[in-house]
Simulated scan of single mutants.
Amino acid sequence: MGFFGPARQGRKDDVELGKGLWRRAHDRFHRGLDRYHQVLEGVEDEQLYDELVHIANQLADLSPRVRLVCVEAQRLVPSDGLDIPGSLAGVHRALSKAGNSLATTAEAAAMLRLAVGPIPVGAASVHRRAEAVFEQVAEAERLLSEAGG
């Protein structure tokens, strides 16, 4: 990505996402993804690792969708502050829940990483939490579509 890559991406994000609410929702989601991937580094059980990587790939596939929702929301109701726009409050709520659920998904993966001995149900708890992330991103997309985005 070259020396100026991160600066250019930051400026592009400022233009597309603004510097307010939608940018924060986008960045929160990406911090959760980063955290989940960091957790993978310490997984020693190969079968568990493969299962968690599969979940990581599915969560990463949500990234462009979250960005698209945030970009479109910024276009419809620009935000440079922290005020939640009434017409897209549900979109923001769904994105916030998705970011929080992603953080708890990473936490569940970290707990599995620390488990001693065989894990009888594998990554079932991580799957359940990841499912909430998928549902909340879909809800944000649905609400945005209903709002005209």
Rank of each mutant, 00 (worst) to 15 (best):
E72L: 14
L102Y: 05
R128P: 01
G2V: 06
R8Y: 12
L102M: 04
G32Y: 02
I119W: 11
W22P: 00
G18Q: 02
I55N: 05
R24C: 08
E16Q: 11
V77C: 13
V91C: 05
Q38L: 11
V15R: 15
H26I: 07
P6N: 04
A73P: 03
E141T: 05
E16F: 02
G20H: 00
D27W: 02
E16V: 10
R28V: 12
D50W: 04
R142P: 08
G2L: 15
R35P: 00
G117R: 15
E135P: 02
E51M: 08
H37T: 11
A7N: 06
Q74L: 06
P78I: 03
S87Q: 14
H26N: 12
R31V: 09
S145E: 08
V39Y: 04
G117D: 08
D45P: 07
V39N: 06
V66D: 06
W22E: 00
V53I: 09
V137F: 02
R8V: 15
G99Y: 06
R93Q: 09
G32H: 00
Y36A: 04
R35F: 07
H92Q: 07
L95N: 02
L62A: 09
R23V: 05
L88V: 14
E131C: 14
E41C: 12
E46K: 15
Q136P: 10
D27S: 13
N100R: 13
L33W: 03
D14C: 03
P118T: 09
E146P: 12
G99N: 06
S79G: 07
C70T: 01
Q38I: 08
D27E: 11
A94K: 00
D50H: 04
V126P: 01
G2E: 05
H26E: 04
A123C: 12
D61S: 13
V71K: 06
L33F: 02
A108P: 04
L112T: 07
D61E: 14
A56C: 14
T105S: 10
G81M: 10
R65F: 03
Q9T: 08
P78S: 11
R31I: 05
R65W: 00
L59K: 00
A94Q: 08
V43F: 05
Y36F: 15
A98H: 05
F3K: 11
V43I: 15
R8T: 13
M111C: 12
Q9R: 13
Q58C: 02
L17A: 02
E72C: 06
L62V: 06
H54E: 11
H30Q: 12
R24M: 09
H54K: 10
Q74W: 01
G149Y: 08
I84E: 10
L40W: 06
A56L: 15
K19M: 14
D13V: 05
L144S: 01
L17H: 04
Q38N: 15
L112A: 14
A147T: 02
A130N: 04
H30L: 15
V91Y: 02
L112C: 08
P85A: 11
S96R: 12
R129D: 03
G86T: 09
A103L: 07
G32F: 06
H54W: 07
C70F: 05
